[in-house]
Write a protein that binds this DNA or RNA. Structure first.
Lengths: 264, 264
DNA sequence: TTGCTCCTCACGTCACGTGAGGTGGC
DNA sequence: TTGCTCCTCACGTCACGTGAGGTGGC
């Protein structure tokens, strides 16, 4: 009972444009039931309509084509479900970020100016378990979580909040070196323990989600630049309260530090 | 007190990448405070940091650059607010569509199969107020609302639900001819009244949001194709319950019609 | 002076849409 | 046979990112 349909007919029934159907053929997401080897004409079967509708919905959800292909190729319903669940979770995260951005934008436009409480500190040499990597800016969150999971898995006596430092290139060029560390008891026997050198920093405490961290960096960087006290080197972050404590973003407390030289 | 910053320094403070800053200069969204005419070096002022942060937030909300430029150029806070409100509304609409797509996808994957109740009808010639235009598929919704607003503003006696017909090219090529109409009393004196010719259609009733209209078209088109009774001509839609009645999408009722030839 | 920073092209990305120019099918 | 449908390039979109190759500034 399967009717062979030309691309135009299948387009009308599936509501995917002819261009889109050709594109899906090229990418192997939706192959025509038959292709005339002489004319190149594509022929579709009515049985392919539900597949087309499914693809359309995944694309409405902005799932990348390659992934749609993978989901459709998934043999069992369970792994399909896993794909979809993962995608929905990403979408929820994005929604949360959007809501944060809206709130933050309102604050900015209302000129909700924080008077930054900037403190100069000298951090003494510290014994710490550290992980360093060269990463991409968009891969940073996954890497960050993984690295701290690894550090907390070590059985050393923790001697301070989780922290990290990040090369400027990471923000200027979208990729650069990052280090996260956990201060530990100097007497630890973990062979991975290193001693971090001392640093002089201008620091600022930031309350709230990390979407707004740029505001803190703006205030701190402006302060340092206008006084001409900046020094080369990575910026520092101390995660006083964070996801690592299972806290909500609104409750996070982060201390950021900008390297300085000279006497303030 | 305004420090002159190189692009790299400004990038560190604003957390926008150097490439992005150059891009924003090129597009005129964020012009450097000064550009060295000899070397081409860009110099920024610390006063530009809040602007950079604002741009970043608008971009996080996926506002197109051109529009960000327009918002920033808006002279008074009121028109700024209007821009933002309009953008937020679009985002909410998209969120609603996303939620519909998720629900619809789950239904599809669970194989929630509707047994389509297809009816063959012959619509007699009708007197109607009609508006025809050649439109883009993504401009269709705005046009549709505007056209019906215009039709309802006429003071003729309405004799049936609002309806429309749509050339296949609109779906195959993303652009084509569309007509919406309001059946009216044949004795109307409105000079714009026309008589629509009779049509033979296979029809199917669809309940719910228009995101799912493609499912109905899939069922109807498959039915027509498998029986080989299709005829050329546009598809028809009757909006029995719709936005025009201030109903929620879940309560909408739409009848779709596919042109047929021959005796079923 | 050296090495770092900055510069301008030119091209890639992603999922198609937009023509141009040409051929096949009924 | 005519006109409609289908075909394959090649290029455009949007907001940047990715090099390449070269110059300026301290």
């Amino acid at each position: 009972m399967a009717a062979e349909l030309t691309i135009g007919e299948f387009s009308r029934i599936s509501r995917l444009s002819v261009k889109t159907l050709r594109h899906y053929h090229e990418w192997g997401v939706l192959e025509p039931a038959a292709v005339d080897p002489h004319s190149g004409y594509r022929y579709y079967a009515t049985e392919q309509v539900p597949t087309a509708q499914t693809i359309r919905r995944f694309r409405d959800l902005e799932m990348p084509i390659e992934q749609v292909k993978a989901v459709l190729a998934a043999p069992d319903p369970a792994s399909r479900e896993a794909f979809i669940a993962a995608h929905l979770e990403r979408m929820e995260q994005q929604l949360a970020r959007t809501q944060e951005a809206v709130a933050s934008l309102r604050g900015l436009l209302e000129g909700r100016g924080l008077t930054p409480q900037i403190t100069y500190v000298e951090i003494p040499p510290q014994t710490a378990l550290a992980i360093t990597a060269t990463i991409d800016r968009d891969g940073i969150e996954d890497w960050w979580r993984g690295a701290f999971a690894e550090l907390y898995a070590a059985k050393a006596t923790v001697a301070g909040p989780p922290s990290g430092f990040y090369a400027h290139e990471l923000f200027e060029d979208e990729a650069g070196e990052a280090t996260v560390y956990l201060p530990v008891d100097p007497l630890t026997e973990d062979p991975r323990a290193t001693i971090l050198p001392s640093r002089r920093l201008a620091t600022l405490r930031h309350d709230g989600p990390h979407t707004d961290l740029d505001l803190a960096y703006g205030a701190l960087g402006t302060h340092v630049a206008e006084r001409g006290v900046g020094a080369p080197g990575p910026v520092h972050e101390r995660y006083v309260v964070s996801v690592l404590d299972d806290a909500a973003p609104a409750d996070w407390v982060t201390e950021i530090g900008w390297p300085i030289a000279g006497d303030p």
